[in-house]
Design a binder for these strands. Structure first.
Lengths: 210, 210
DNA sequence: GTCAACGATTTTGTTGACATTCGGGTACTT
DNA sequence: AAGTACCCGAATGTCAACAAAATCGTTGAC
């Protein structure tokens, strides 16, 4: 795939470009030392990925995601990640089980030491490994995309005080079900986890009515 | 959005371009009477949509979807459409209910008269209206994309003899649940419907091992 | 007769210049 | 002073030519 597209995507996800920021072709072509055509191509790709918004003759901006949209994104993620969890429960090997248990252990110490950044990273790793173990490429691709779209709101969530503890137990429940090979339980645990995320988003949305 | 992208997408979905066909930029720019830049842009967009495959310096081809991939696509669709059905059950108005019942009625006569083409079209309409009624833009967008990706396999399915009868009852069950406002039942009925589609795909795949 | 190297052709990738469109600022009118 | 028409600048959209890469056919050697 195109390298420039990945660079620009990373810069958007990392917050280097914030929601609402204009993406000027000339400026970007200088910044990434490439022609305007490459930038244009990247913008088209990221537009269909839902990360960028384009208006005829007016240029591109980083897409703003409203709270209600973030909730819908998480709802969609919920059903897809549940599918992934079920498939992971079906396909995970002994080695995978050990790895998952190890990740949970690391999360536990991260929560104990109040290392929010490390926990967030482990969270990402756990979900990614589950996707890989599931072998469900389609669901994995869609979830990866949905995660990107709501990246900013996910970040807000991660730094909420006290959430790590709840989150940890939910993740542990998911891993337990996967290790037990119980597809239904794995799906249910994943649904419960994301339901709680949706709950938090709802509360945050209600608190910030405008 | 770009008009050329829509035209090319339609031509791929309608089979005007078959899986594996090369998409030559010059040829397409003549066919659609536009510059190569527009074609390039369309190809990039359709690549991220999963309809087209691109290889460095080797051009683009219409993506081939294997049976196992079609199954995964339908599995992902299953959980997302179930979400949509639940939301439709929650949000549908009296007017919507009447419209859904009317569609089912038309489907019933189409099956009675053995009009496969008309039934297939009504099928598409029903699913699209449910998406619209759900108000869940994210799930709707993802499902629309997934449907496009597996369009060819869906077509195979539609022309299978005897499937219309089963399919009709499943759709009637979905509509009944939505009209009753029963979210869980609507989701379950939709899951059952797509489970049966997956079943057929599996059988077709086993019959064509290679 | 087979295989490898070479050249021609086709196709994609890239660059630069030009056209078009939109927004804002200015000057002019009332 | 308010409103309107106009013009200019900035950015996007479009086009054509050029460069680079890959494929295919041909030629020649063994």
């Amino acid at each position: 795939m195109d390298m420039i597209t990945n660079d620009l995507r990373d810069d958007i996800l990392s917050g280097r470009f914030a929601p609402g920021d204009r993406l000027l072709e000339l400026q970007l072509s200088e910044q990434y030392t490439c022609g305007r055509a490459a930038i244009r191509s990247a913008i088209v790709a990221l537009t269909t990925e839902g990360l960028v918004e384009r208006e005829e003759n007016r240029g591109a901006t980083v897409r703003r995601i409203s709270i209600t949209e973030a909730i819908q994104i998480t709802e969609a993620r919920s059903v897809l990640e549940s599918l992934i969890a079920a498939q992971a429960a079906r396909h995970a090997t002994e080695k995978d089980h050990a790895e998952l248990r190890d990740i949970i252990e690391q999360m536990r110490t991260a929560v104990g030491n109040d290392e929010g950044k490390a926990y967030s990273e482990l969270n990402r790793v756990l979900h990614r490994r589950l996707r890989e173990m599931s072998g469900h490429d389609i669901a994995a691709e869609l979830v990866a995309n949905l995660r990107n779209r709501a990246a900013h709101h996910q970040y807000r969530l991660a730094v909420m005080p006290g959430r790590s503890a709840d989150s940890l137990e939910q993740h542990a429940a998911i891993v337990d079900a996967v290790v037990a090979g119980d597809e239904a339980a794995a799906a249910a645990a994943m649904t419960a986890h994301l339901e709680s995320v949706i709950e938090v988003l709802h509360r945050w949305g209600d608190a910030n009515v405008r």
